[in-house]
Nucleic acid binder design. Structure first.
Lengths: 151, 151
DNA sequence: TATGAAACCTAGTGGTC
DNA sequence: GACCACTAGGTTTCATA
């Protein structure tokens, strides 16, 4: 499967996805072509989903953040929720959950007014019974979405 | 500040952070050096925080996910929470929130048993009164952490 | 099957207009 | 911001273990 060299490469790409294969190779004790081949393989296998930029939300005007618990009617299908949620550019992540609420949605907005408008639009979706919002005060920890796997 | 060309560049980097400046330039109608200068400027200004790899958590064995509301004693300082939460590799994000709970923590674990152990450790922190966990069933939407800003 | 060395080609980078 | 020139990095080929 994945050996510790693969994990070390993922670790380096996590720190800087634009690092040259030669520089990554220097860290993981491999030549540039060898690193490239492993990265290509990780891409082909879907372990690596792609390369992105890490942006500062505040610098781009997305200063307000909230988590919205969504309570849905009867047996709303996940596909119905996804189709609805995908239309909101303000929704960063959404998932169905076990517990009181049916879905949990992470929303980013420009300000509280904007956030309020988005939550109202969500609450007005046909399958939504009610919502419960939790506004974020201060971010404490912000890490890559997948924890580092140490071997 | 940021013009629509900058935003278009950020958009392209979001799709593929390893794309060549020339290819990005072809999309945003700019020469490669011009794109590089803008990216350098966005990095210097902190709008771009860095470049990372997007990984498939499941492929790396992080199949279980939960959101944990943390209720703290009296006036626990955010710094105290951060110091504690940062020691958990399983914690992806954490923030203080307004509402019933004091903090909201996003946890990734290998399986339910692992998740349970992590939540118990969090609950045992000296400043924690109680926790309330919401386990994720199915991810519906998963987008870049900062929404696209259309101008 | 995975690697390293070399060759070749493409991209990054700094200077100039 | 474009163009040019130079350097660095990506990518393929090939030989090897």
């Amino acid at each position: 499967m994945l050996d510790r060299t693969d994990l070390a490469i993922l670790d380096q790409l996590g720190l800087d996805a634009r690092a040259s294969f030669a520089r990554i190779g220097a860290v993981v004790n491999l030549s540039a072509p060898a690193v490239k081949r492993r990265v290509d393989r990780l891409l082909a296998r879907g372990v690596i989903d792609g390369f992105t930029v890490r942006l500062d939300p505040a610098a781009l005007g997305w200063a307000t953040e909230a988590h919205v618990e969504v309570y849905c009617t009867g047996a709303t299908r996940p596909a119905t929720m996804r189709d609805a949620f995908e239309r909101y550019p303000e929704i960063v992540t959404a998932s169905t959950v076990a517990g009181e609420a049916d879905a949990l949605v992470h929303v980013r907005a420009h300000d509280v007014r904007h956030l309020d408008a988005v939550v109202e639009r969500i609450a007005a979706e046909p399958f939504v019974v009610r919502t419960r919002s939790t506004i974020v005060l201060t971010p404490l920890v912000r890490r890559p979405d997948t924890p580092r796997t140490t071997v």
